[in-house]
């Protein structure tokens, strides 16, 4: 398995503010990697350095084997970028825009197929100005993938979506991942990271404070469990034993029984406060 993104000792400072204070990252080809972190943690700065938008102060960065600090057209044609907000090309139609952008790439996909893939086939003739927020975001993704990128960056792709639109968007991203596209995603939504990502990294105060699979992040799977029932709650390392004991006490069904381990959100909040 090859490495798509390799970062060692990355730092970036704006005036007095150390935005990124020494980050190491390895993102494997073909995986979906989520970067989590509060606003101002250095998440966007890191991603923008990887995308070739910003210069770094120090450290080694390799994206698809190239230093993004010196982006070439050839490299750009292998990387897709979906930015946070954009309101451009409002007067062009979806099809015109996707076709136009296809012209920039040496190995562009068929524009109509991409439009269909992002679920905009019925809106292809509409001007982008007339689309809803969620539909616009699909155009952004279409423009991000039109050049058949090996690596796709998605910056907070579902902010402002309603729950249904978000689910549909997740399916779209999962479809791309299944085709083998490496995806680097930043998000504020922990359920999104949990649903999409093979691995996540949590950035706080310019450093990576935890990295791993969503299900085991921060020792989540082995953390103490909380057993709750009507009339009480205990935190314990041996929840099964507690439940057995309760079964005996209630002589059968335990009223309102739940056994929980910390959610990704609990772990995340503990990590970024620490």
């Amino acid at each position: 398995m090859t490495t798509a993104v390799k970062v060692r000792g990355l730092t970036k400072r704006y005036g007095d503010v150390q935005a990124v204070g020494g980050i190491d990252l390895d993102i494997r080809a073909g995986e979906v990697f989520a970067i989590l972190g509060p606003n101002g943690a250095g998440k966007s700065t890191t991603v923008e350095i990887l995308e070739g938008y910003r210069k770094r102060d120090a450290g080694e960065v390799s994206v698809l084997g190239t230093d993004p600090g010196r982006p070439t057209r050839e490299w750009r044609s292998r990387v897709g970028v979906v930015l946070q907000t954009a309101n451009d090309v409002a007067e062009a139609t979806v099809r015109e825009t996707v076709r136009h952008f296809a012209g920039y790439y040496p190995n562009a996909q068929d524009p109509d197929r991409v439009i269909e893939q992002v679920g905009l086939a019925e809106k292809a003739g509409k001007r982008i100005r007339e689309l809803s927020g969620g539909q616009r975001r699909r155009v952004d993704v279409a423009l991000g993938v039109i050049g058949s990128p090996e690596l796709l960056f998605l910056d907070e792709p579902t902010t402002g979506f309603d729950p249904e639109a978000r689910r549909q968007f997740w399916e779209l991203i999962q479809g791309l991942a299944h085709q083998g596209t490496t995806i680097v995603l930043t998000t504020h939504y922990l359920d999104e990271a949990e649903a999409l990502a093979d691995r996540v990294a949590v950035i706080a105060k310019g450093r990576i404070v935890a990295e791993g699979e969503p299900s085991t992040l921060g020792g989540r799977a082995t953390a103490r469990a909380t057993v709750r029932w009507s009339g009480g709650a205990v935190e314990t390392d041996t929840p099964t034993e507690t439940v057995l004991e309760l079964t005996r006490r209630f002589d059968g069904e335990i009223p309102e029984l739940t056994v929980t381990r910390p959610s990704l959100e609990d772990v995340y909040l503990r990590l970024i406060e620490g």
Binding site: T2, E74, P106, N107, S148, P149, E150, A177, Q179, G180
Partner: peptide, 19 residues
Amino acid sequence: MTQTIAPPAAPAAPAKLPS
């Protein structure tokens, strides 16, 4: 994801950038 799949429409030979 454990197996690597070729990226979509991977070029057989590096295609030329549009002029």
